[in-house]
Amino acid sequence: MDVTQEAVIREFFSQLLGLIQTIQEVLPGVEHRMCVWHMYNNFKKKHPDRVLKERIWVAARVSYRDRFAGLMESLKEFDEGAYNWLVNHTYPKEWTRSHFRTSVKCDILLNNLCESFNSTILDARQKPILDMLETVGFYLMVRMEKKREWIKKYIGEICPKILKKLEKNKLAVNDCIPSHSKNWKFEIRCMYGDRYTVNLISRCCSCRKWDLNGIPCAHAIAAICDTGKEPEKFVYDCYSKEAYMRAYEPMISPMNAEQI
């Protein structure tokens, strides 16, 4: 690496750290996460083994800490160099669900949301700053109105993509045997030997999947059905039609052309 390349890399990381610090100042307490795909692309430059790729993704998707710790110990025995890279270059809270905070109800591992928006504004990004902002503003104005009109016609109480995820979780309920303890607390025994605890009052499961994304996991659904309730009633309010309407309620005002 020559001096110029090293200087460019140092400047990049300096700006990145500055961006992270600025976000913390503007949005104090916000959780910083990595895109696991981008993290892995850096990782594979030193460790290209496909078996390691599978291990990284399993560790990223696991939802509770004991399981993550076991996977990391297994990785250390399999390839200590790969283990050391992760320890020295990342923090678990940035890339594995096992360490994500549960308050935000978001368990995504990729930055596809950003990439989707980025691909939409490719043409706008080539324009001068004011023209770029006007183009992006116009796009958002039209899109938000389309979303408002769509949600008005939607007859369900929970957003359709969330319902699809809930239905997928229901398919695994047959593997779960719920036993009621007291005060809406359950022990769930699974056919494959695992056991979990579910608290329907606090809406949490020891697997942490319900806690992370706000959608009842299979263990929670088993407990909910044992009480005769509907799992849909235990989906977090952030996925409701009312919450969707509130999110798109603000209006971006139309603008006149520049007067010459």
Rank of each mutant, 00 (worst) to 15 (best):
144 M>K: 15
88 N>S: 14
190 C>M: 09
115 E>D: 04
30 V>K: 01
94 E>N: 14
66 D>W: 04
156 G>A: 09
117 F>A: 12
108 I>N: 06
46 K>C: 11
14 S>F: 13
111 N>A: 14
156 G>Y: 09
129 I>Q: 03
16 L>M: 15
160 P>Y: 03
32 H>D: 01
75 L>F: 07
145 E>G: 06
236 Y>E: 05
40 Y>D: 10
190 C>P: 00
154 Y>C: 08
17 L>F: 14
77 E>M: 14
19 L>E: 06
217 C>E: 05
243 A>R: 00
50 R>F: 06
102 T>A: 01
173 V>T: 06
122 L>A: 04
125 R>H: 03
46 K>P: 00
143 R>Y: 12
219 H>V: 01
108 I>P: 00
121 I>W: 00
91 Y>C: 14
46 K>E: 12
213 N>H: 06
111 N>M: 11
137 G>R: 13
35 C>G: 02
91 Y>T: 12
238 C>Q: 04
76 K>T: 02
163 L>W: 05
43 F>I: 04
120 T>N: 01
42 N>C: 09
119 S>K: 07
135 T>A: 15
109 L>D: 08
94 E>Y: 08
136 V>P: 01
45 K>W: 04
84 N>F: 04
82 A>H: 03
131 D>T: 13
142 V>Y: 11
30 V>F: 06
71 L>Y: 09
223 A>H: 04
14 S>P: 00
225 C>H: 01
248 Y>I: 11
217 C>S: 04
53 K>A: 14
62 V>L: 09
250 P>K: 12
134 E>Y: 12
27 L>T: 11
163 L>R: 13
5 Q>I: 05
66 D>N: 10
